[in-house]
């Protein structure tokens, strides 16, 4: 069982959350000409690293907020969690 620290609610079991995938993927800017390659990169290509991974989780059976979780994909250790609006450049 993973225990995920929701920045809004505190530490909760993984059962309350839904996974949302890689949080570092960036959607191409709206209303701008983009190539098929750029669209491909956004929609399909993933680094899927072994080690530290910044990912989205949805506290769907709790406060229903999206959060970001920095987690190790080989040990499942969770280093830090953030509110959704944090860590955006």
């Amino acid at each position: 069982m993973l225990y995920i620290f929701c920045p809004h609610c505190g530490s909760r079991s993984q059962n309350e959350f839904a996974y949302g995938g890689d949080a570092t993927v960036k959607r191409p800017e709206l209303n701008k000409e983009i190539s098929d390659q750029e669209w491909n990169n956004f929609v399909y290509l993933r680094k899927s690293p072994r080690g530290k991974h910044l990912e989205l989780w949805h506290h769907i059976s709790g406060c229903r907020q999206w959060i970001k979780v920095e987690r190790d994909t080989s040990t499942h250790e969770i280093f830090k969690t953030y509110k959704a609006e944090e860590l955006t450049e």
Partner: peptide, 13 residues
């Protein structure tokens, strides 16, 4: 299991 993992061992939920 529902999240990226390289661990080759599962979680109970």
């Amino acid at each position: 299991d529902g999240y990226n993992s390289y661990s080759q061992r599962g979680n109970l939920p």
